[in-house]
Amino acid sequence: MFGFFESEETKRLKSHITNLGALAKIDGHLDPAEINFIVSIGKKNGMKASDVRHILSNAEKIEPQLPTNDSDRFDQIYDLVEMMLADGIVDETEMDFCINMAARLGFKKTVVGVLVRKISLGVKDGQSREDIKHEAQSFLNY
Score class of each variant (00 low, 15 high):
Ser128Val: 02
Thr18Tyr: 02
Thr18Phe: 10
Leu56Ala: 07
Gln137Pro: 00
Asp96Cys: 02
Asp70Tyr: 13
Gly106Gln: 09
Phe107Pro: 01
Leu13Phe: 04
Glu60Lys: 15
Leu140Val: 05
Phe97Val: 15
Thr68Gly: 10
Val81Gly: 01
Ser128Met: 07
Asp51Lys: 11
Glu6Gly: 03
Ile99Phe: 00
Val123Ile: 15
Gly113Ser: 03
Val39Lys: 01
Asn58Tyr: 02
Tyr78Gly: 03
Lys61Trp: 04
Ile62Gln: 07
Glu9Ala: 11
Met95Asp: 06
Gly126Thr: 00
Asp87His: 07
Ile89Met: 00
Pro64Gln: 11
Val90Leu: 10
Lys14Trp: 08
Ala102Met: 00
Lys25Glu: 14
Lys133Asn: 08
Leu140Glu: 06
Pro64Leu: 06
Ile55Gly: 08
Phe37His: 15
Phe5Trp: 12
Arg129Cys: 02
Arg53Pro: 00
Phe4His: 11
Arg104Trp: 04
Lys25Thr: 14
Ser50Leu: 09
Ser7Arg: 04
Asn36Phe: 09
Gly106His: 08
Glu135Cys: 05
Pro67Asp: 03
Met84His: 01
Leu20Arg: 03
Lys11Gln: 09
Asp96Ile: 15
Phe74Ala: 02
Val52Met: 05
Phe37Lys: 14
Leu13Cys: 11
Asp96Ala: 15
Ile132Lys: 02
Thr110Tyr: 11
Lys44Glu: 14
Phe37Ile: 10
Tyr142Val: 13
Glu130Ser: 11
Asp75Pro: 04
Thr68Phe: 04
Thr93Lys: 15
Ser7Glu: 04
Lys48Leu: 15
Gln76His: 12
Lys44Val: 04
Glu63Lys: 14
Ile55Arg: 08
Ala103Ile: 15
Asn45Tyr: 08
Asp51Phe: 06
Gly126Asp: 00
Val116Ile: 07
Ile17Asp: 11
Asp27Glu: 09
Arg53Ile: 13
Arg104Ala: 13
Phe2Asn: 10
Val81Trp: 02
Ser128Ile: 06
Ile38Lys: 07
Lys109Pro: 10
Asn45Cys: 06
Ile26Gly: 00
Phe139Arg: 10
Ile99Asp: 00
Val111Ala: 12
Glu135Asn: 13
Val123Asn: 05
Ser40Phe: 03
Met83Val: 09
Ile89Ala: 04
Ile55Trp: 08
Gly88Ile: 09
Lys61Cys: 06
Val112Arg: 02
Gly106Met: 03
Asp70Pro: 08
Phe5Val: 09
Asn19Tyr: 13
Gly21Thr: 08
Gly3His: 12
Asn19Gly: 04
Phe107Leu: 01
Ile62Cys: 07
Ala102His: 00
Glu34Phe: 00
Met1Trp: 13
Ile26Ala: 07
Phe139Asn: 05
Gln76Asp: 11
Ala59Ile: 15
Ser120His: 10
Gly122His: 00
Lys61Tyr: 08
Asn141Thr: 11
Glu63Gly: 07
Ile26Ser: 09
